[in-house]
């Protein structure tokens, strides 16, 4: 089943009255349970595509369907709800909230989604355990290493059991060994929970693990 579909997706920016097409008529489909890598040179539109697919930004024209829902018909509030419940995000710079503990960071999306207290606590502990941080739940981000922070970020992304997990250069700030461990986690999520994983990365070790690689150049998909 297609979990994501784009039709003639275009994003145009105007800078000093000059129009720049970051994406031009992108048509793609991603099936449920796929592990997809998106790569391309700098300025190819990778991040812009991720913003579009993750409902972070709206396209200039074209359509995006997520689980058969046309996202162009959704309000900002509805998109926020969609991101909260169906999408998960892992950022290159981890972006954990610095004043909250690992536990509280992972718990936050569940709290927002109205998950009851007991269930929330149990799932948070289970997620942190699954990424190997069961003993570091009370630590704040500044007390965790880069790899540990990224693992907490992955646990946070999985909090509400999203259908799709987006990751933007998740190993970009990590050493190769730690990066491999992070990719192991993504693979295991994809294999065991059948969650769709979409990773933007230059890293060859990412593309080698993906089921499919989408190459972008100058805002278009190239083969």
């Amino acid at each position: 089943m297609n979990i994501i579909q784009t039709i003639d997706l275009t994003k145009r920016y105007k800078i000093n009255n000059i129009a720049i097409d970051a994406l031009q008529n992108v048509n793609l489909t991603i099936e449920e349970g796929e592990f997809v890598a998106i790569n391309g040179p700098s300025g190819s539109g990778k991040s812009t595509l991720l913003h579009m697919l993750g409902c972070i930004d709206r396209p200039t024209s074209g359509k995006i369907y997520i689980n058969n829902t046309d996202t162009s018909t959704l309000s900002s509030k509805a998109l926020a709800k969609l991101r909260l419940r169906q999408l998960g995000f892992v950022f290159q710079q981890f972006h954990l909230l610095p004043t909250l503990t690992a536990f509280e960071n992972v718990e936050l999306p569940m709290r927002e989604a109205g998950v009851p207290g007991k269930e929330r606590r149990e799932r948070t502990e289970s997620l942190l355990e699954s990424v190997g941080l069961g003993s570091r739940t009370r630590h704040i981000p500044s007390q965790l290493s880069g790899g540990e922070q990224q693992r907490v970020a992955i646990a946070r992304a999985l909090a509400n059991r999203p259908a799709i997990v987006f990751a933007d250069e998740p190993t970009g700030e990590l050493d190769s060994v730690t990066g491999e461990r992070i990719l192991d986690i993504f693979e295991s999520i994809n294999r065991e929970s059948l969650q769709t994983i979409i990773i933007v990365s230059h890293d060859k070790s990412v593309t080698s693990r993906a089921h499919r690689v989408i190459h972008l150049k100058d805002g278009r998909i190239v083969q």
């Binding site: 926020a80 709800k81 969609l82 991101r83 419940r85 909230l97």
Partner: peptide, 8 residues
């Protein structure tokens, strides 16, 4: 970040 992960 909070907005991106769906916090209202």
């Amino acid at each position: 970040v909070m907005s991106a992960i769906g916090i209202s």
